[in-house]
Design a protein around this nucleic acid. Structure first.
Lengths: 334, 334
DNA sequence: TTGTAGGCGTTATCAC
DNA sequence: GTGATAACGCCTACAA
């Protein structure tokens, strides 16, 4: 691969002059300019960003640490992150922590080694002391994505608000019981409960939680549940994956959706509209989140004096489909 | 971030000595060794791989060019690629071409700029002349993933063989008609046809192709189809996404799966087992493909003299679930 | 066993 | 306008 020095020799000028031409910084004699450009084109010159990074102080690299990119929600985010980074001249280097704190720490070390200019991370444990300390030690611009953090910039959707929307939606459907599938330590649950209470004050007694991911176990729980409850049950799953799983199990058990069970998921993945009845789900503004995160990060990179902390809570939107809407599913029946 | 030179000053030795200690290459005086290591630990020294790359000739970077990482099949692959790369001390830098040749070319240029040691790519157009020329110009170790290429290493699943499995499976079900949903220019179709013919010699007359991705259009086609055909129809969709879409549409139209329509997808994504009835699908050995690709690439990186061309056709496996198996779905009914 | 010297391909800061 | 020259942080001889 040809270097500036080589181009300099070929065109009979000095290497810094080649640099000036290729970077278009300062004025250069038009003739020389043309000669150099021609030579560069001819040999498909590509600046060595490694050398440039060493000399200058920026690598134009943004580190990305995901918990698990094979989750399509994150994969979708990655795409937008990369797009927005590229639009600003940055490239991304990617790692998966696999929901493992030790691995996440390793990832951060590798980031340091590559001297990335900044970091976008989906933290494994966003509020632990050790994570905060690690970020402080990191000492580079960083944005937490998808999670709310205290001492660092973060861009996320407001899970409480989103959960509330689902709660108030299901609460108004006239259910006799409710099920939440997922971890109750999430804001989704908190908000869900709030929304539910507003719409249906004495809901809490009839609210069941399903923690397990295991199909057999979920099937058993649902089976028992629908033996006991003959009226409508409102079900909120903490992500689409779980919701789809439950969708299938309900079908298998012969439970009518949405008449007997009204189901809502989270993430609004493409499968939602392909299921029958369509799966209601909470849609997160992925593109906007990604763009906001990258823009904020780049701002911090380019303005090291900026010390404010961003806490950007974006609003999710509940998309109602047949799985939780009688009118909707009846329309589809026709 | 502390450098070797700084550690050298702090410990009163020369920088190369620090390098020797930290890289564990040569024998160093144990006392010095300890002093240096202690200092490095204390300051959380992280070697500047940028500088190392400039000095040595390797960047320990593997470039990844995907068509679209938001496709969960690729996202899954990425995860394994990154894992295997990390296991060998490499990191990955990731780009999406978005199925656009021009963008793919841009990605390759960025790769050059970063002087990545090698490249794993899902080519947009693996057999075009311009792609081959581009790869030749690239002049670095590269492996095509998921696609069969002629002049460069490739690791992929044999689509023809996979399609044949599906064809022979559906062909033996005693269908009166068949549908293929997807592009017929794929080996999947070719193999499907072969397998079908073997099992059901006069199938071709009753084989319909659905090219469109549009739900409304597919619904209309299916509606008409099942008005005409009352016996069983075998449907093969070229990926799970399309299969799931059809699954939902069949449900909506009240077509019984698998009695009236036996459905098979491709990729065996997690949704397959969550649907009801479970979706039969072709499972690709993602982890093995990823590992093979990375291992081959690293071999080429470390053995530049190696000039052979790898053509690794891996075998896919048809996973039969309720959507195409009466026994299976009847068992589930119970 | 350890230190010195040169170089990797840039950028940045000087003089000229 | 242009060309020396010194970084950047590390590695690899080579010399002591």
């Amino acid at each position: 691969m040809i270097t500036m020095t080589e181009i300099a020799k070929l065109t009979g000028v000095s290497q810094p002059t080649v640099s000036r031409v290729l970077n278009g910084n300062q004025a250069v004699n038009p003739e020389i300019r043309e000669r150099v450009l021609a030579c560069a084109r001819e040999h498909n010159f590509q600046p060595n960003v490694i050398a440039r990074s060493l000399a200058g102080s920026r690598t134009m690299l943004i580190g990305l640490v995901f918990t698990d990119i094979s989750n399509s929600f994150f994969a979708d985010l990655e795409k937008y992150l990369e797009q927005e980074a590229k639009r600003n001249g940055y490239s991304v280097i990617l790692f998966n922590s696999d929901y493992d704190w030790e691995r996440e720490k390793e990832c951060l070390d590798v980031m340091r080694r590559y001297r990335v200019d900044g970091l976008i991370i989906v933290p494994v444990e966003e509020n632990s002391k050790r994570f905060r300390e690690e970020m402080k030690r990191l000492d580079m611009p960083a944005v937490a994505l998808t999670r709310r953090t205290k001492d660092m910039d973060c861009v996320y959707v407001d899970h409480i608000e989103a959960g509330r929307q689902v709660g108030s939606h299901l609460g108004r459907l006239g259910c006799e019981a409710y099920v939440f599938a997922g971890t109750t330590r999430d804001g989704k649950y908190e908000g869900f409960l709030e929304g539910l209470k507003e719409a249906d004050p004495n809901c809490e007694a009839s609210l069941t939680n399903i923690e397990t991911k295991n199909s057999e176990e979920i099937r058993e729980i649902l089976k028992k549940h629908f033996k006991k409850h003959t009226g409508k049950t409102g079900i909120f799953a903490y992500n689409d994956r779980r919701a789809i799983q439950i969708h299938g199990l309900l079908k298998e058990l012969g439970v009518e959706i949405p008449q007997q069970a009204s189901l809502v998921g989270f993430d609004n993945t493409y499968t939602c509209e392909f299921l029958y009845p369509g799966l209601s789900s909470v849609s997160q503004p992925n593109r906007e989140m990604a763009e906001k995160a990258v823009q904020r990060l780049i701002w911090k990179i380019e303005h090291p004096e900026e010390s404010s902390i961003l806490d950007e809570a974006m609003k999710a939107e509940l998309i109602i489909r047949g799985s939780s809407d009688d009118a909707c599913s009846m329309a589809a029946e026709r």
